[in-house]
Each structure stands twice: as structure tokens, then as C-alpha cells.
Amino acid sequence: MRGARRWQIYVPLGLYLLFTLVPFYWMLVFAFRPRGSTSIVPWPITFEHFDTVWNGMGFAVFFQNSLLVGLASLVATTVVALAGGYALARYAFRGKAAFMVGMLCTQFIPGALMIIPLFEIFRTLSLTNSLWSLVIAETVFQLPLSLILISGFIRNIPYELEQAAWVDGCSRLRGFLAVVLPLLRPALVAVGSFAFIHSWNNFLFALMFINDQEKFTVPVGLAYNLGENSVDFGALAAGGVVAALPVVIVFAFIQRYLVQGLSAGAVKG
């Protein structure tokens, strides 16, 4: 819509920005101001709460665990979805249509309600209380959407480009690596960062599959802080900042690609 007046943009936008940013600001105030202060600016600035959560409450370990699970899920999701997405885009095979429909249906499977059977499976595989159970669960739940996104992208890349590479003597794999992969960068950024953010944020699987405090992830540690009877609000806020930082940074970088990636790949199916 063209021709909206200035104030018609800035007034609602300003109000919405306030709604978005005040909660973040509130967290920062509590994380950085000294214990017992009631000031509404984080000044004088202190890092005592970060010391408490990072060293005293074990967030250093939780952070490492979350990072490991996040990166492993990112790699696993991207590689598996890349292979599957290529097959879906370039080969005709029996049951392909059924497979596509099946993938859409998985979107209706209540992830939260799968904890019981998944728990049983991981018990059989002796993977309970292991971070790998989280990697597997995360990857599987990320796969359908990632496959759809990546195969949509590959379909938009002209097949002739690849065929030209074969004529020049490239193998199928080399042709893919040299021609298709570089063009897929926006899709890979979207899929990879989706996978990372989701697994970084996932709470329920980590809560249900992990008992050992040494293996807690950041959200579980954060929930623990919330559950304490006398909540240390400074520590809660500092833990929140630790939980927010990686995803907010990743998100700030990718949100442009996200909008582009979605309008290019997903909707056309």
C-alpha cells in the first residue's frame, strides 16, 4: 500500500516497539543492577548476577550442553535434509507423492505428546540421560519442514546448470557441490538457523529425557531458577540474558534471509 502518512507508520510502530522492547529492557535492568537496587536504569552496572549463574548455578555447563546439542542438530538436519531434498527435487520415484503428503501430516503430530513413546525408544537404545537423545529428537522434528524448504529451493535452480557440469566431465556429486550448493546458501542459512534456534530453545524434551544436572540445557536451568521458592530475580534475569544472547544474535543476522527464503522457497511448494 503506497502513500501512508508518516505518523500512520511511526505511531503504531512506536507503540509496538514499546511492547516488544520493554520486556527485554526489564530483564536487562534486573540482570545488570546491583542486588537490592530499585532503580529503573541498570546503573551502577554490575556483573555479580552473571557470576552467580555462570559459576554458581552451573550455567557454564548448561551453555556448553546447549551449544553442543544446537550445533549437532544444525549439522544433522542440514546434511540429511540436503540429501533428501535433492532426491525429492531431482528424481522421480515410487511413493514420492505419498512421502510429500506424509511430511505435511507430520506437522500435525503433537510434538509435546510424543514424549512417552520417544522416552521408551531412547530407553531401549540406552540413550536416556544422554545429549544425543536431544539431538535425534530435534533433528527428526526439524526434518519435514527443512526437506520441504530445501527441495523447493533446489527445484528453482535450473537442472540445465547441473547437466552442463556433467557434460564438462563432473560426476553427479561434484556437479552438485560445485553448482548447486553455492546457490543454496540462503536456504541453508534458513534451515540451519531454524534448527539451531529450535534446539537451543527446546525445553520439554530436555526436561523429560535428561535427569543428570551435569547434562541440563539452558532452558531447563532457567526453569529451575524459576521454580525456586525464593527466586533470586537478579540471577533469573542474568540467566535469561545468557539464554537469549546466542539466539538473538543469530536471529539478527538471519532475519533478512528468513523473509527472502520464505518468499522464494516455501510458499510455492
Binding site: 516488544t20 534456534i197 530453545n201 525445553f203 524459576l226 533469573l236 534475569a237 540467566g239 539466539v247 536471529f251
Partner: peptide, 26 residues
């Protein structure tokens, strides 16, 4: 515009538990 977009979209990346932590404070 670019900055506004990044800011107003940012809660999307935040987890449910973190949302709780923030709103409990509020």
C-alpha cells in the same frame, strides 16, 4: 525500516521458558 524489522521480529527467537522468565519479572 531494517532496524525496526529486526527489533519487532526478535521475540520470535526467544524460547517459552525465557518468555516466562521475562514476564515473571514484569
Amino acid at each position: 525500516r531494517a532496524l525496526s524489522r529486526a527489533l519487532v521480529f526478535s521475540p520470535w527467537a526467544v524460547s517459552g521458558v525465557l518468555t516466562t522468565a521475562i514476564w515473571v519479572l514484569l
